[in-house]
């Protein structure tokens, strides 16, 4: 029974990271925007929802919606400067932006409880289930939400909107010259991505029931990056596969470690070395990731500019 509990927990966390990698993948794979502050969406979604519920007494569903909305708004805000910034600069700016969000959560204690974090975040429909069945319910909730997000993003990326987005990623100049309003498209993509990641944050907060600024350090963003690179940029299935792979890898090292003659400190470092090397190896040897993006019309160049 307990083994199953652990699997349920593992799958729930994979599902939650699935939102974050789906969202990041949508930004990177579909618009070419390099967001190193992805954790900010996660934080905003988690904090907004928990504060609305814990401090303003809103029902959980409102918290979820609020988290999504505010996170989408943040997506809107950070997408404004993409007009004038080169993608490298924007990437660094988002890294900084993510840290600023964490510092606000840390320093504005009147609102966010500061370093102490928000405790006792209520869980939706908790009273309807027993202690043993509730995790299963939450897993289903997460997976259903994830499936909805997946379907919406898939529909979006196959729509004219999605094709335009990919056009921006591959040839921004060209789409501009074709009269596409690339700026508006990027902003819309960031809002959608923000909302998806924000929902992930809200689901996370109400699952773990405690959040603090410690949850939202830049390392989370780097893990999300590892997910989409391993999984494969530019397609939604890849994002999910990446989330599964990296989460399983992270957890599996805990088991393998028992059979290796290394100290736990060494093992922990080794794990991060492997994560770093995975990022490098995939980009060098298999830039498409585990799941390759299917390209119907773009026969001439893939996203690394190689000739197919």
């Amino acid at each position: 029974m307990t083994t199953i509990n652990f699997l349920i927990y593992l799958l729930t966390m994979i599902g939650i990271y699935g939102f974050l990698s789906l969202s990041l993948n949508f930004q990177v794979g579909f618009t070419g925007l390099i967001n190193f502050g992805q954790v900010a969406f996660f934080a905003i979604g988690a904090y907004t929802s928990s504060l609305l519920v814990c401090k303003a007494g809103a029902p959980v569903i409102l918290g979820f919606l609020g988290g999504m909305l505010l996170s989408g708004l943040f997506g809107y805000l950070i997408s404004i400067p993409t007009k004038s910034l080169k993608s490298d600069y924007w990437a660094i700016a988002t890294l900084a932006g993510g840290e600023v969000i964490r510092l606000i959560a840390l320093n504005e204690g009147w609102l966010t409880e500061g370093a102490f974090g928000v405790m006792r975040i209520p869980q939706p429909f908790r009273a309807l289930f027993s202690m043993d069945t509730y995790p299963l319910f939450y897993l289903i909730l997460v997976l259903v939400c994830l499936a909805i997000a997946y379907i919406i993003l898939s529909l979006l990326s196959n729509s004219p909107f999605g094709r335009d987005l990919k056009a921006i990623r591959d040839e921004e100049e060209l789409s501009l010259s074709l009269g596409k309003n690339t700026r508006k498209l990027k902003i819309e993509a960031m809002i959608v991505a923000g909302m998806v990641a924000g929902l992930g944050g809200a689901l996370f907060a109400h699952y773990i029931t405690y959040i603090s600024p410690e949850n939202f350090r830049p390392i989370e963003t780097f893990l999300m990056w590892a997910m989409i690179i391993v999984g494969g940029r530019g397609n939604h299935l890849g994002a999910i596969v990446g989330a599964v792979t990296i989460q399983l890898f992270n957890v599996s090292t805990r088991f393998i470690g028992a059979y290796l003659p290394f100290t736990p400190g060494f093992m922990a470092a080794l794990r991060m070395v492997i994560i770093g090397m995975l990022i490098v190896a995939f980009l060098v040897f298999r830039p498409d990731g585990l799941v390759k993006e299917r390209k119907k019309i773009y026969r001439f160049k893939n996203d690394d500019g190689e000739v197919d």
């Binding site: 307990t2 083994t3 652990f6 603090s212 992270n250 957890v251 805990r254 093992m267 922990a268």
Partner: peptide, 20 residues
């Protein structure tokens, strides 16, 4: 088990200790 000073990794570790 390593918490990685990350709450989520700490939770992974705790769950593993308790459930497995």
């Amino acid at each position: 088990e390593d918490t990685e000073t990350r709450p989520t990794a700490g939770m992974d570790a705790a769950r593993k200790l308790v459930e497995l």
